[in-house]
Amino acid sequence: MKVAVVGCGTMGNVHGTDYHRMPGVELTGVCDLDRETARDLAGHLQTKAYFSFEDMMAEAEIDAVSIALPTNLHKEYVMKAADLGKHVICEKPIALTLEDAEEMIAYCQKKGVRLFIGHVVRFFPEYADLKRKLEAGVTGEPGVAHLKRVGSHPGTVKDWYNDFDKSHGVIMDMMIHDIDFARWAYGEVQEVFALNRRSEEQDYALVTLRFAGGAIANLEGHWGYPGAFATAAEFAGTTGIIRLNSRETDSLKLLRSSAAPAGARGVQVPKSPSYQDPYYYELEHFLACIREDKEPLVSAEDALRALEIVLAALESVRTGQPVRLPLKGGVTG
């Protein structure tokens, strides 16, 4: 399969690098308005650099294209690619508004192309293992979850993150990972309450999700954290708690409330080996879905639902009140 990448920043580099080493895949071009950035990545990956989307799409052989651009440009370039009959793999979040996301999904369907959105946390082995254990009922009936994701402020590297109109801040761009995972684990969200404080150096948010099934999830996100990037998750149910923490060597732990042998400290699952690349798994999966015409682990409609929850959180921040879902007018799907 022949693929190309639009946007040669951090995520474009990730996509391009994984395509370059993927069997049965040919990276036919990378594109960026910054000529030096495009040339550097193309040289590293032994492909051709383009400085115009239109030139690349006209000259290169392409079956699918990765869109790794700032969020405010997703709709424009997804629809341009669909116009040319190319399948699209777009980085999360799908868009900044429900209207844009709905239009993107409908337009790709109309043009007969697949649209995949990169909610990559579902492909992290430790998170996938956590989801399997929850499905197996190891913690009993769902209760309360806590998810945390903290790291440096990306605005120190790419200025567009500092423009709220383009990025919508930490809830939209980073916490959406945990929002999608929490929904995957606990089902549909019924109500959202959020707090958010932003400055030039810091963007900190707390979001509480109330699920239709009665479970609760508390999410914490922080841009500007002074330490290393870190994630954590804890899901508590009626018979136990399951935890993961990227700071710990044994990243996934299950604590059962039932009787255990004397001295037992719970079942511990080793941290995923460092060579496991969830982005590689994700892209490989999406391309397989195109080849085999199968449904993806995360759909464009899933991305739409995650966006709706983010927008409800931002509305709660604005009003200081809980926000019920679905949002006014509902969502497609």
Rank of each mutant, 00 (worst) to 15 (best):
Y281H: 10
S246Y: 07
P70I: 09
G140W: 12
L287H: 05
A217T: 00
N245Y: 11
G140I: 10
A106L: 12
G9E: 03
F116Y: 13
L311Q: 00
E284M: 14
L283S: 08
S257G: 06
M11S: 11
F286K: 05
K131V: 14
G320H: 08
D277I: 08
V138F: 06
A42I: 04
Y161G: 02
Q276P: 03
G333T: 10
D165W: 08
V323T: 01
A136V: 02
F164R: 12
R256Y: 01
E200L: 14
H222K: 08
H153W: 10
V5I: 08
Q321Y: 10
H168N: 12
H168M: 15
Y19Q: 00
K2S: 08
G266M: 11
S66V: 12
L209Q: 01
T139R: 12
F164D: 13
E284L: 13
P278Q: 01
M79R: 11
K86I: 00
L307D: 01
V6P: 00
D203Q: 09
A313V: 05
T28A: 06
K148R: 13
A205V: 06
P278C: 07
L69E: 06
P273K: 05
E292W: 11
E26A: 14
L98D: 00
M11N: 05
Q268L: 11
D277E: 09
F229V: 03
E36K: 02
G112L: 03
S316L: 09
L27C: 04
P296Q: 11
L283I: 10
A300I: 01
G221Q: 07
Y77L: 15
V78K: 04
G112T: 03
R265F: 10
M174D: 09
L45R: 00
E36V: 10
R35Y: 06
A64Q: 01
E126K: 00
L33E: 04
H222Y: 15
E76F: 11
V14A: 02
D34M: 14
G43P: 02
E234Y: 10
L244F: 14
I241Q: 05
E91W: 09
E248S: 13
A236L: 07
R291A: 13
G155S: 04
G29H: 07
K92Y: 04
V323P: 01
P70E: 09
R324G: 12
F193G: 02
H15E: 03
M175D: 06
H87E: 02
I176A: 14
K271W: 07
G329F: 14
L311E: 00
T238Y: 04
R35A: 15
E26R: 10
F286Q: 05
C289Q: 05
